[in-house]
Amino acid sequence: MDRRLWVGLAGALLLVTGCGTESAVGGIPERTPPPSEHSVPTPRPTPTPPPRTCPSTGASISVGQVDAALGHRAVVIKLTNCHSGVLTVNGYPDVTLLDAKRRPMKVTVTHGLSYMAIDPGPTKLRLRKGESALAAVSWSNTVEAGEDKAAGTYLSIARSTRDKPVVWPVDTDIGTTAKITLTAWCLTFPT
């Protein structure tokens, strides 16, 4: 078949089939109606962080943004002494992963090194008023074939198991790993 004839047939076929969301009814183009406001999904409300307060323990906890790298994720927990006395911090934070209904999820919590953070190991820290300690919570978004993915919505965090936790909204897409890793409290992260 002649090349010019082939190009002409392909062009004609493209014109006949057309594209877009218009159709001709009785020779008049008709647009597809936009979806009604009732069919537009409403966005899920974003959980809000707890208000900044100074609890009776003097350990005010806040959580940073999720950092991501190659399927790995981490957040930094910051504990600040908001009382006038010295606050002692030692070991690892107490962290529980919660679902959207704030129920604890079944995950393994380990202490140590992760792809996102180096664990300095437990050290006794004495924080004066306004001083802070840091810890990291890390996880991987690994998905194994045939297994259900999991994601948490909140982290329940306390200085230690003896303190009352605060609940922070943190999307944790833990895939199928069912594992989070914690570093110990430190003044600065090792490099």
Rank of each mutant, 00 (worst) to 15 (best):
T46F: 08
P93Y: 02
I28Q: 14
G58H: 09
G64E: 08
P120D: 03
P55I: 07
G18I: 07
P45E: 11
I61C: 04
P43Q: 05
W6G: 10
I77F: 02
A10I: 14
T53E: 13
G130E: 10
C19I: 14
R44Q: 12
T48W: 11
L13R: 06
K106I: 10
V25H: 07
W6V: 15
K129P: 05
P41D: 09
T17A: 15
P49C: 08
C54Y: 07
Y115R: 09
T17S: 15
L70N: 05
H38Q: 13
G121A: 07
T110D: 04
I118W: 02
K78H: 10
Y92H: 03
V107H: 04
P35W: 05
G112I: 01
G91V: 05
S60T: 12
A135E: 00
P29I: 06
G58A: 11
R73M: 09
I61G: 02
V109I: 11
P120R: 10
H38Y: 14
K101F: 12
P120I: 04
A135G: 00
L70G: 02
G71Q: 01
N81R: 08
A12H: 05
L15A: 10
P93C: 07
P45M: 12
T80V: 11
L79E: 09
P41R: 11
G27V: 09
S36Y: 00
Y92A: 02
H111I: 03
H72I: 01
R103T: 07
G85W: 11
G26D: 14
K101T: 10
R31S: 14
G112T: 01
S23V: 14
P93E: 04
P55F: 01
D119I: 01
A12Y: 08
D119A: 01
H83K: 09
E131W: 06
P34W: 05
T42A: 12
A59Y: 01
T80D: 03
A135I: 00
K78L: 10
Y115V: 09
D99P: 02
Q65R: 15
G20E: 12
A133K: 03
G27D: 07
K124T: 14
K129E: 08
H72D: 08
K78Q: 08
N81P: 07
P33I: 14
R44N: 06
T17G: 09
S84A: 11
H38E: 15
W6L: 15
R31H: 13
S114A: 04
G27M: 03
D119M: 00
H83S: 09
P41K: 15
A136R: 03
S23H: 12
L13I: 14
G26Y: 13
V95H: 02
I28E: 13
H72Q: 04
L98P: 03
L134C: 01
T108R: 04
S132T: 11
V7W: 08
T108C: 02
V95L: 05
V63I: 13
L127G: 09
A24M: 14
A100C: 11
P47A: 07
K124R: 13
P122E: 04
K124A: 12
L127N: 05
D119E: 03
A136G: 01
V63N: 06
G130A: 12
